[in-house]
Design a protein around this nucleic acid. Structure first.
Length: 275
DNA sequence: GCCCAGGAGATGT
DNA sequence: ACATCTCATGGG
């Protein structure tokens, strides 16, 4: 089915921009398990097509196709590096992912590089998750909270996750025991942030990634090593800690701070904006 | 071999 | 509240 006519870049959005780690590119398109269901996305000209049990509106929301990014660019047009970063990637979108899938992949992301985050995401999915087939290829979904909570720590360590193993298991147990993960999108930013910070393996940076990519909180502003470098290079940063930078950036940039952050992050990481 | 990676938690001040 | 250490593991 056709889900959109927008000129969006699937490779940039799903793989290169490091906001999710489960997509793989095949000759037939991009495939992954999203919200527990297999999905294939591909383009024909400007049109985006999908093969999935997910409804058209769900996929449009996942890809953030309803948002006017031209308006976001205008919102930050008075900040030179911001305007430049957004205009540099007119086909990049900030995904609306599943809260649980975002939470688990970003616990894996702590002090880790992108290619290894992908391998660990794949490893725990193959080891614990549900298997599907999509155009002749096997793909696995991430483990559910119950599957992860019941996995022995030693088994998880054999998959290579290292010291993050107990974080995954304890967080999974809290979610399985009623942590309000799926209510975070309806809370205020401050309430949702406070809740997420209770979870083992979730600090300021991971919390903001979950809020931004997995809970629809577009003001969430994750500060990783690259965003820190860019902020120090291009702005008069007096904050020392990354959390202080996050607070200052959110305060200065307002409602769509996090969307801008994703463009800045990618520009810094690829070197498209000199630091 | 070295340094780095979309950091978090524990400890000490 | 802030600074410093340690924590697995593989990529470059």
């Amino acid at each position: 089915m056709q889900i959109g006519n927008e000129s969006m870049d699937l490779r940039l959005t799903l793989i290169e921009s490091a906001q999710c780690f489960q997509w793989q590119e095949t000759p037939q398109g991009f495939i992954a398990v999203v919200q527990g269901k297999p999905v294939r996305l591909w383009k024909q000209g400007d049109a985006v097509f999908a093969q999935s049990d997910l409804r058209r509106e769900q996929l449009r929301h996942y890809l953030d196709l309803e948002r006017d990014y031209g308006r976001v660019a205008e919102q930050y047009a008075h900040i030179a590096p911001a305007k430049r970063a957004i205009e540099m990637y007119p086909a990049l979108r900030v995904l609306n992912q599943d809260s649980w899938e975002t939470l688990i992949t970003f616990i894996l992301s702590a002090n880790n590089n992108v290619s290894r985050i992908r391998k660990l995401t794949d490893a725990i999915s193959r080891g614990l998750g549900a298997r599907f087939e999509m155009c002749g290829e096997e793909i696995w979904g991430l483990p559910t909270p119950e599957q992860l909570a019941n996995c022995p720590e030693s088994h998880l360590r054999e998959m290579g996750v290292g010291y993050r193993a107990p974080y995954l298991i304890r967080t999974a147990r809290m979610v399985a025991d009623g942590f309000p993960l799926w209510e975070l999108k309806n809370m205020s930013y401050d309430q949702a942030y406070e809740q997420l910070m209770r979870l083992p393996g979730v600090g300021d940076k991971v919390a903001n990634c979950v809020l931004l990519f997995g809970c629809g909180h577009s003001s969430a502003f994750p500060v990783d090593v690259w965003v820190e470098r860019l902020l120090k290079s291009w702005f008069d940063v007096t904050s020392r800690s990354r959390k202080a930078m996050m607070l200052a950036a959110r305060d200065a940039l307002g409602e769509n701070a996090g969307l801008l952050q994703q463009f800045l992050f990618h520009a810094a990481r690829t070197g498209d904006i000199e630091l």
